[in-house]
Amino acid sequence: MKTDEWKSRYGFLLAAIGSSVGLGNIWRFPYIAYENGGGVFLIIYFFALLTAGIPILILEFSLGHKFKGSAPLTFARINKKLEWLGWWQVLISLIISIYYSAVIAWAIAYFVFSFDLQWGVNTIDFFLHDFLGITESPLTLGSLRINVLFSIFIVWLITYFILNSGIKKGIEVANKFLMPLLFVTMIIIMFRSIFLPGSYIGLNFLFTPDFSKILDVSAWVDAYGQVFFSLSVAFAIMITYSSYLPKKSDIINNAFITGFMDACFALISAIAIFSIVGFMTYNAGGEVPKNLQGVFLAFATIPKAINQMPFMPSLIGALFFLTVISAGITSEISITEAVVSSIINKLHRPRKEIVLIYCIFGFIVSILFATGGGLFILDIVDHFVNNYGIVCTGLVEVAALSWFFDLNILKDHANNISDFKINNIWNILIKFVTPIILLCILTLNIYKDIRIPYGGYSVKALTYLGWSTALLIFILSFLISKIKWYDKEILKGLK
């Protein structure tokens, strides 16, 4: 089967940056920076970007480019015994692609609501009860919200049309439109926010350095965790995207551009979000607003701030949710492509057929997130998939490649086609620094979850929805790797 390729380097870069810049840049990074020492955290963050984020990006770009396949095919080509690792990453992407579609769907609905500020004065009540019809626990699904369901359908329809058109005409064209749109809307929101009264209060929260945090282990773990989650590494995406690169591609430079551009977007959104936080604090006479991260930041705190804006609040609201939609869609298509390409590789079926079947399947499962229990389920699944799934696959990936594969093969491959060269420091970062950090993150996550059940949910709900999901995808990855490739020859010839 002929493999599609990126039309230009610019197209690949936009797609890779589009995949990295997601909802985490908007609603996770600003709060983590604020929580962990402001300006000091940013320095730790850049250190983490250079010592873990970009080295892993170089690793994954080299893997995809050298072995020319989706994650399972790439790992199977390295060693048949490693194929399950690729499927583990793909199954994580599968789960994320499903719940991510629900969040984008909420943003689409809120984009429409913003024209007449339909969320009213009590934005939390509107979001939880009027919009989501939330139930009392994750194990009670409640009623189906038709407007949410309709928005989810739109997300899958968009995903279908983009992926169905292939790499060049679908993903590349979509990113060439969505990424500039995302950049422009973010810049407009940032400048509007900076000129709001009291914005400086928020910027002081965000940037004032707290030097005591430099010795705080949790600030370092959060910085590395943020870099790791944000760059879309360890869940099959970057391996898949780089497999579509033409033979002559500057891998190392591409990795640096992707890493730094992701940081640029994170900083722009942090400035915008915290200027808005400052504005709200100023209006409330010095009281800092609650809910400064996650879905509540986007769907309750920001709408509340938009209500208070002095000039054209509807326009700013529409622009904000357009930003969330663009950031979400560019990530969603990359996550879905990681799954679709793996199935295409394994079964040797036409792209159009696999994309159609997967999008129908994705939509059907997403219905779960249009119920009253959807937000709880999303919260639990997201916590376990991110904190255990991605961290574990990342850890196994760097450990397996470092200890059972010669990293110099990848280093030489990257150096041969790149302008900027990497040396043995890269080997040390991949072989020692990254596994140690991931192990620290994993240990800390386990410790936190054992000490206090996540989010105050019942142990039963966490076991059924969280631990079981994490365990199930791990077992399934082994089972899927046992299915035969349509042609065994596909595993040969590229070592």
Partner: peptide, 30 residues
């Protein structure tokens, strides 16, 4: 905005945008 916050903001923006622009220019020159 206090001075230390302003300095940290400028440093962060210079590192992020400086890094991105440096590598983009490097790619364009090739």
């Amino acid at each position: 905005m206090n001075t230390s916050a302003l300095i940290m903001m400028i440093i962060s923006l210079v590192i992020a945008f400086g890094g991105a622009i440096y590598f983009i220019l490097k790619a364009l020159r090739k």
